[in-house]
Every structure is written in structure tokens, then in C-alpha cells.
């Protein structure tokens, strides 16, 4: 996923809501990759990241490798 993307997979401009979902996903993904957080944060952030991935993926905002977390 490119954080700078302005369109969805169909080439439509992203709406403000879609942009926010993608932004949230990007931030959670960065956070979930950290290794210095306590388990309580890492595990729960990963779960949250996965759910945001689902929303962005289903809305055709991106198509990112599903196995990767």
C-alpha cells in the first residue's frame, strides 16, 4: 500500500472517509510492527490492524498481501 495513494483500486478518487480508514490502517500497521511494546499493546494493536485491513481490502481501497502481519 502506498500511503500517498489518491485513488482506490477502481481508479476512483478516495473519499475523506476512505482516506481516514487507510490512514488508520497505515498507523496501526506501523505500530504493530514494533517490537518494543508490551505484549498487551502489540497483540491488541495487531488485532485492530487486521480488522482495519479487512475494511480497506473489502472496500477496494487496496489489495495487500493477506498473509502478512
Amino acid at each position: 500500500m502506498s500511503p500517498k495513494t489518491n485513488t482506490d483500486l477502481l481508479g476512483r478518487p478516495l473519499t475523506a472517509d476512505e482516506r481516514e480508514l487507510l490512514d488508520l490502517y497505515g498507523r496501526l500497521r506501523t505500530l504493530s510492527a514494533r517490537t518494543d511494546l508490551p505484549p498487551v499493546a502489540t497483540a491488541n494493536v495487531k488485532q485492530a490492524m487486521v480488522l482495519l485491513w479487512n475494511a480497506c481490502n473489502d472496500l477496494a481501497l487496496m489489495y495487500e498481501e493477506p498473509g502478512c502481519d
Partner: peptide, 11 residues
């Protein structure tokens, strides 16, 4: 399956 797979399966 991984985490994302299961989230997708659920969806």
C-alpha cells in the same frame, strides 16, 4: 491460516 486470513474468512 494467519490472522488476516481468519478476519477475511469471517468477513
Amino acid at each position: 491460516d494467519g490472522r488476516k486470513d481468519w478476519s477475511w474468512i469471517t468477513d
